Computed example of a mutant assay.
Amino acid sequence: MPPKKRTRNPFRGVMDMMSEMNRISDTMANLETGNATQRGFSDAWSPTTDIFARGNNLVIRSELPGASLENVEVTFSHGYLTIAGERNKDDEGVIYYAEERFRGAFRREITLPEGIEDTDIEAKFDDGLLEITVKNGADAEGPAQINVQSKKRRA
């Protein structure tokens, strides 16, 4: 049987500094744990999320590209809204030259205002965007402004 031909990465050296630092960090973490592929909830990635008011409603949008509805779970318990799930590779046979998107388990916990019930929460998932609406969850006055002070004097 002839030796397996190695595929050359045409993007080697082109990736930005942050990608290289992330790769090194992941490699070091894998050396410490001895586990290169599985993530637990303690080290799961957290999806990018926007939280804003639309009228009296609180809206939470999380970007979950590549995740399927079957692998997304939204729960509410003791005032905490939890978005959890998993994004897996579904492209068997593909050779990656650069891979920066997180795969595996994800988890995001958001504290909701007091008095919210599970019946006040509605969730929709379309095209990789999870939108959760919390009825009457927004503060009509908005967030309180906190005065920030410094010990240093200005010149």
Rank of each mutant, 00 (worst) to 15 (best):
K4Y: 10
K4R: 15
R6I: 15
T7K: 03
R8V: 15
R8D: 02
N9D: 14
N9I: 11
R12C: 00
D16R: 02
S19M: 01
E20V: 01
E20S: 00
N22D: 04
R23L: 07
R23D: 05
R23A: 09
I24W: 03
T27E: 10
T33I: 08
A36F: 12
Q38V: 06
Q38E: 12
R39A: 01
S42C: 00
D43T: 10
D43P: 03
P47A: 01
T49M: 07
A53D: 14
A53H: 01
R54H: 15
R61K: 14
S62R: 02
E63G: 13
E63W: 10
L64K: 11
L64T: 04
P65F: 13
G66S: 12
S68C: 04
S77R: 11
S77T: 09
L81H: 02
A84Y: 01
A84F: 06
G85I: 13
K89Q: 12
D91C: 04
E92F: 11
Y97C: 00
A98K: 05
F102R: 04
R103G: 02
G104R: 05
A105L: 04
F106H: 09
R107I: 12
E109A: 12
I116A: 07
I121F: 05
E122V: 06
F125S: 04
D126V: 11
I132E: 03
V134F: 05
G137C: 02
A138R: 07
D139Q: 12
D139G: 08
E141C: 02
E141N: 13
Q145P: 00
I146R: 08
I146W: 08
N147L: 11
N147Q: 08
Q149R: 14
K151R: 13
R153S: 06
A155V: 06
